[in-house]
Every structure is written in C-alpha cells, then in structure tokens.
C-alpha cells in the first residue's frame, strides 16, 4: 500500500504519556519491529481502534512499511479496524463455557442490548445504536473453572447468570 492510497482523515500521534511508554518499549528489543504488538495496543488504547492514520504512524515509528503493520493488524483478533462501543463485551463460547450454559448468557445479552453478535469483519453489527456496547464471541479466556465468563474491556466477570448480567449492565449504564 503506498501512502497516496491511504485516506488519512485525522492524523495520529501518541499523546505525551504514551510517547513516554513507547520510548521505553522500543529499548527492549534489538530490532524496532519487535515492538509492534505493544505499540499497536498503546495506539488502540488511545484511539479506540486502528485507523489508517494509526497504521501509518506506527509504520513510521517502527521503520517498517505500512503494509507490514496492516498485515499484523488483520491477523490478531484483538485489534479493531472499525469503531467499537465504549464497553467491549467478550463472551466466551468454547467447550467448558458451553458446558456451563454460556448460550443462555449470550442470548440474554443479545436481547438486553438489542444487538446482534459482532463478527471480526463487521463490528458494527454487534454495536448498540448509542455506541455504548459491542458484543462479541471469543474463544476460551482461560477461566473455565468459573465458567461461564465474559470480559468487559479488561475486566473478567465469572459464574454468570442472566441476573448477574442484568446487575452488570445496570452498573455499566449508570
């Protein structure tokens, strides 16, 4: 992808705090490119999702081509290329959670939020109209002992039931 082909709406740059963190990060590796994942995480935390501007900026910082950054972004499910809600709700649906009725939790969330489940290529599908929540399915979150589990942004919620989901949503909405 050459630079002219990328539509840059708003340019991106790290804020002061992230810049400091980035400077520290880059010293950890013998090659700059290795800082790719932590750098993308930093950027995504700042903007909410990875825009073309972010990719261009990261490519410049790490001295690699934009294509390489794009290549990485598309590979990893945790990087979003579209806007997501303020709260990203990840519902685990792998076997141990399935054995503990994660379907009930998922259906309940769908009904309560009035949205479908996002797919990796269509995040808007799982995002509520007010832009508050994005609902998605994920694979085993390594918490099968407290199944069924969901993650809301960085926080894990265990042993869920529809009632607990209601409580949680009420708390998040306030």
């Amino acid at each position: 992808m050459s630079d002219e082909l990328i539509q840059i709406e708003t340019p991106f740059a790290f804020n002061e705090e992230n810049q400091r963190e980035f400077d520290e990060l880059i010293g950890r590796y013998p090659i700059k490119e290795a800082a790719m994942l932590p750098t993308l995480h930093l950027a995504q935390n700042q903007t909410g999702y990875i825009t073309p501007a972010v990719m261009k900026y990261v490519a410049e910082q790490l001295e690699v081509s934009v294509m390489k950054v794009k290549d990485v972004v598309t590979f990893y499910p945790m990087f979003f290329e579209e806007p997501v809600g303020d709260y990203v709700i990840r519902v685990c649906h792998t076997l141990p959670c399935a054995l503990r009725d994660c379907k009930v939790v998922l259906e309940h969330l769908k009904e309560k939020l009035g949205t479908d489940i996002a797919s990796e290529t269509n995040l808007a599908k799982g995002t509520t109209a007010d832009g508050k929540f994005t609902l998605m399915k994920v694979e085993c979150l390594a918490s099968c002992d407290v199944a069924p589990v969901i993650m809301v942004n960085g926080d894990l919620h265990k042993n869920l039931t529809p009632e607990k989901v209601d409580e949680l949503l009420a708390k998040l909405a306030s």
Binding site: L95, E139, C140, A142, S143, C144
Partner: peptide, 11 residues
C-alpha cells in the same frame, strides 16, 4: 499465552 481451551493454571 495460555489459550488451550480448558487450561487456566498459569493465569
């Protein structure tokens, strides 16, 4: 990277 379904001891 503990991601094998059913594993949660490293966490």
């Amino acid at each position: 990277d503990e991601s094998e379904p059913g594993t949660f001891s490293n966490r």
